[in-house]
Design a protein around this nucleic acid. Structure first.
Lengths: 107, 107
DNA sequence: CAGAATCCACAGCGATACTG
DNA sequence: CAGTATCGCTGTGGATTCTG
């Protein structure tokens, strides 16, 4: 995933983690609280199940989000930010703020 | 470039602009001041001329950086952040800080 | 409901060679 | 020095179908 970037470089690590077309969207969704798979899906029209699954797995492996499966029928899976994920909050906030700023000056 | 993301969404705009394997590196280089093409290249071992050129062009088109050509032999081209580019400074800072944090807790 | 499994297109990126 | 011009691979992301 945007590989062979020096992972020991701070900027490189951040790039590795946040790159991918949907990661930032997913994270900003989860900032609002725990969400189910289907909730995430409807919140982001345009993403496919395949992609959502993949990105969630990647974020899980990076210890950014947690995945809780309820052994019920029909299946229920909840995603939430880990502590590390929570630490991304100010980062996401800054990114979004700058986006607003950029859109404004562009018109 | 990570296309068909809603560009009117703040997060989407930011993603569009900062995505790409090298953009953030280039920008953090230019934060240090005006740089020549060759300076950027040596500062980022691993990037090819082709990629450097492409990413610089994209950033230029987005009004993030400026390109100044000196009509001399041998050629001399200087890149610098525009005002908009300068406004990215806190953003880059936050990203880098978080990268350091993440690297630390990982070990 | 929340996915796994295939199949596939194309953009992103790289290597190399050439030029004003 | 600071690029273009080709060529080609590879991974990312998409469409679709199938399952516990």
């Amino acid at each position: 995933m945007t590989n062979n970037i020096k992972p020991n470089c701070p900027m490189g690590a951040t790039i590795c983690i946040l790159s991918g077309k949907w990661k930032l969207f997913i994270l900003s969704q989860l900032l609002e609280g725990v969400k189910r798979f289907s909730q995430l899906q409807t919140a982001m029209p345009g993403i496919t199940q395949r992609m959502l699954t993949k990105q969630l797995r990647e974020l899980e492996e990076l210890n950014i989000i947690s995945r809780k499966v309820y052994p019920v029928v029909p299946p229920k899976v909840e995603y939430a930010l880990t502590e590390v994920g929570q630490s991304l909050k100010p980062v996401l906030q800054v990114l979004e703020d700058w986006g607003k700023f950029y859109i404004n000056i562009q018109k």
